[in-house]
């Protein structure tokens, strides 16, 4: 049907793939070509020349950087993420369960956060400039100033220590029922929700307000439509694209929040895995996990852009 849309979407996806390639270069470069000797940094000052040479050999540091890069990229594309230096385990295998855990946590946080943020945004618009709106905006502004761990530990302190409704540490293992799992992730999911909620709500509010103040909404009001019909027929079809955009951008933000939240709740996901191995200076793991995080982040951004393209009537119905 509409070829310009297909073309634009294809362009955006192609651009995203290009960007991912560039990001892989950047991540590789960030860990390989920085000043200083990686092997030296890993082993510390006490390293003997022999152990240094061994490690360089093991890391392939004797080969030129671009060869190492293509080797690494080839591996990534075929699902081989290499082996962790600290444990000698295959990275892809270790990541599989953790990736699933992280997605599980992020999914439930999103399931709570998205409808809540949109509802609160709508309420703020409905009672614009009233005390409800001011309260919501004030709380939202304050909570963007809160570090994630403050929110997380407040939840732990109240719900796990004082009331013992939920576990303070989110242990999950194979064979857990879905109910048990949900119980385990209740607090981290709540923390994640709070982390993105404020931002998502403020952006939703702005997006809807922008549409509500447009001339065509006035036209609809002057036709005698009820407030609800104005919103349903005239505001909503135009606000949906910006709202999807807001949601996607905040999900991307959630990807970052998950790192800290997993550490707080000692949750066996990708974030904790990444932080652990940064501390151990396990470069192959950091590269692999960093790339996965970046890929998720970029994909969400692409989806946000595509939503905006598809929802634009000018592109859907060209002249």
């Amino acid at each position: 049907m509409s070829s310009p849309i297909v073309k634009l979407v294809a362009q955006r996806i192609a651009l995203g793939i290009l960007l991912l390639l560039a990001v892989s270069v950047l991540i590789f470069a960030g860990t390989q070509i920085l000043p200083g000797d990686v092997a030296q940094a890993i082993l510390g000052q006490s390293a003997t020349p022999e152990s240094l040479a061994n490690l360089r050999e093991q890391l392939g540091l004797n080969q030129p950087a671009y060869i190492r890069y293509f080797h690494w990229l080839g591996g990534v594309l075929t699902g081989d993420l290499g082996t962790a230096m600290s444990s000698g385990q295959d990275i892809a295998t270790s990541i599989k369960d953790r990736l699933w855990n992280t997605l599980f946590l992020a999914f439930w946080a999103a399931v709570v956060a998205i409808p809540l943020a949109i509802t609160l945004g709508l309420i703020a618009v409905r009672y614009r400039n009233g005390w409800v709106d001011k309260l919501i905006s004030g709380v939202a502004l304050a909570s963007t100033s809160f570090p994630e761990f403050f929110i997380g530990y407040l939840l732990v302190f109240y719900f796990a220590v004082q009331h013992q409704w939920f576990p303070a540490i989110s242990t999950v293992y194979d064979g857990m029922s879905i109910g048990e799992r949900l119980q385990a992730i209740a607090l981290p999911a709540a923390a994640l929700t709070l982390v993105v909620l404020a931002h998502m709500m403020r952006m939703t509010r702005a997006a809807i307000l922008n549409v509500m103040q447009s001339a065509y909404v006035e036209t609809a009001e002057l036709k005698g439509l009820s407030a609800f019909a104005v919103i349903r027929k005239h505001a909503f079809p135009n606000a949906i694209a910006p709202i999807i955009n807001v949601v996607m951008l905040n999900l991307a933000y959630l990807v970052v929040g998950v790192v800290v939240v997993e550490v707080i709740f000692v949750y066996p996901g990708m974030g904790q895995y990444l932080v652990d191995h940064v501390t151990k200076r396990d470069v192959p793991v950091v590269q692999a996990v960093g790339l996965i995080f970046a890929a998720v982040y970029i994909s969400l951004n692409i989806i946000a852009d595509i939503a905006a393209i598809v929802a634009n009537p000018r592109l859907r119905h060209p002249k």
């Binding site: 560039a22 990001v23 991540i27 860990t31 800290v260 940064v278 470069v283 995080f293 970029i298």
Partner: peptide, 20 residues
Amino acid sequence: DLLMSIPTLIMGLVVLSVLP
């Protein structure tokens, strides 16, 4: 644009894993 396409925290962790 390229630098901003990676979340700051992730990029920070990546480089801090090799820097002193």
